[in-house]
C-alpha cells in the first residue's frame, strides 16, 4: 500500500489533509497566546502569597502598635495579654531556649550522620539509611509532640527529679530530632559536592579517612554545612506543634530548660484556640508576634541562601 486512500478509494495526500485542517486552526493560535498568560497568572500566585503574608502581618500589626509601642513590645519582659501586658521578650526567650536545646541535639548528630553517610558508609548502607531519615523528616509534628509529652518527658523526669510535665528540655530535644534529617541530608549534599581529587590528594600523603574529613572535606564543604544548620535552626524557630504540646503555655523569660516556657508559635496557637474575638488586642497581638516570627525566619533563610550562593566553592 503506497498511497493513502479515502473511503471512496480516492487517493489522499497528507500535506493536503494538513492544509485543509490548517484553515480551522485559528483556535490553536488563540490557545498558543492564552496559555502563557494563564501560566504567568498562576506563577504570580506565589508572589501574591508573599505580598499577602507581608500585607496581613503589617496591617494587623500596625493596628496593634497603635496601642502598644514598639519599644514596650520589644523590651517588655512580661507577657500577659489577658491582663494587657505585651512584652514579647518571654516569648522570644522561650523560642530561643527551645531552639538552642534543639541545636545542641541536632547539630552534632546531624553532622556526624552526614560525615558517616558521605564518607564512611558504602552504597548499600546509604540506600537503607537515607530513606529511613526521610521517614523521620516526614513524621507529622503533632506526632512528635505526642512523643515528647508521653514518652520523652516521663523518661527525663526519672533523671531530673521535680521536672514538670511541660518543660523546654523535652520539647527542645524532640524538635532537635525533627531537624536532624535536614542537617544530615543538606550537609551530606555539601560534602558529596567536594570533588574526589581533593580527597585523593590527601590520601596520597598517607592521611587516614578521619584526617581527610577534618582537613579536606569539612573545610571544603563548610559553607554548605553552615547553610544547612541555619536553615534547620530557622525551621526549629517556626516549629509549632511539638512546642505547643510539650513545652506548656507559661510565658517565662528563663534560660533554665527544665522550666515550662511558651514560644511565639505556641502563643499564636493558644490565642487562636481561645476565645479571641476579632478586633481585640489579643487578636492584633497574634499578628505582632507572627510578624516577629516571620522576620526572624526570613532573615535566617536569606542568610542561608546568601552563604550557599556567596561562598559556593568553585571546583
Amino acid at each position: 500500500m503506497d498511497q493513502l486512500l479515502n473511503n471512496e478509494g480516492k487517493e489522499l495526500n497528507v500535506q493536503t489533509l494538513i492544509e485543509d485542517k490548517r484553515k480551522n486552526r485559528m483556535t490553536g493560535n488563540i490557545i498558543e497566546k492564552i496559555i502563557p498568560v494563564f501560566l504567568f497568572l498562576c506563577a504570580s500566585v506565589s508572589i501574591l502569597t508573599t505580598f499577602g503574608i507581608v500585607f496581613t502581618l503589617l496591617r494587623e500589626s500596625i493596628g496593634f502598635f497603635s496601642d502598644t509601642s514598639l519599644v514596650e513590645f520589644y523590651t517588655g519582659s512580661s507577657w500577659s495579654p489577658w491582663s494587657g501586658e505585651f512584652g514579647v521578650l518571654p516569648l522570644i526567650g522561650g523560642t530561643l531556649l527551645i531552639t538552642v536545646v534543639a541545636a545542641v541535639v541536632a547539630v552534632p548528630i546531624g553532622l556526624m550522620s552526614a560525615i558517616f553517610l558521605s564518607e564512611y558508609a558504602d552504597d548499600r548502607v546509604r540506600r537503607v539509611i537515607k530513606p529511613i531519615l526521610e521517614v523521620l523528616a516526614g513524621i507529622p509534628t503533632v506526632v512528635y509532640g505526642y512523643f515528647a509529652l508521653t514518652f520523652v518527658t516521663p523518661i527525663l523526669q526519672s533523671f531530673i527529679p521535680g521536672l514538670g510535665i511541660f518543660n523546654a528540655l523535652s520539647a527542645g530535644i524532640v524538635v532537635g530530632v525533627m531537624i536532624i534529617p535536614m542537617i544530615a541530608s543538606l550537609s551530606e549534599d555539601a560534602m558529596n559536592a567536594v570533588p574526589n581529587s581533593l580527597r585523593e590528594g590527601a590520601y596520597g600523603l598517607g592521611s587516614t579517612k578521619l584526617e581527610v574529613v577534618i582537613k579536606v572535606v569539612l573545610p571544603a564543604a563548610f559553607s554548605g554545612i553552615v547553610a544547612s544548620i541555619v536553615l534547620a535552626v530557622s525551621r526549629a524557630i517556626g516549629e509549632t506543634m511539638i512546642v505547643t504540646i510539650a513545652a506548656g503555655a507559661t510565658p517565662n523569660l528563663t534560660m533554665d530548660p527544665t522550666e515550662s516556657v511558651q514560644s511565639m508559635t505556641a502563643f499564636i496557637v493558644q490565642a487562636a484556640t481561645g476565645d479571641t474575638s476579632f478586633g481585640s488586642d489579643i487578636y492584633y497581638s497574634l499578628y505582632a508576634v507572627g510578624m516577629t516570627l516571620f522576620i526572624l525566619t526570613l532573615v535566617m533563610n536569606l542568610i542561608a541562601q546568601y552563604i550557599s550562593h556567596r561562598f559556593r566553592e568553585e571546583y
Binding site: 493513502l4 489533509l17 494538513i18 485542517k21 490548517r22
Partner: peptide, 15 residues
C-alpha cells in the same frame, strides 16, 4: 496537524 481519524492514521503509519 489535526488529523484525528483512526482509519487515515492507520494508513499513514503503515505507509
Amino acid at each position: 496537524h489535526g488529523i484525528k481519524k483512526r482509519a487515515i492514521l492507520d494508513q499513514i503509519v503503515e505507509k
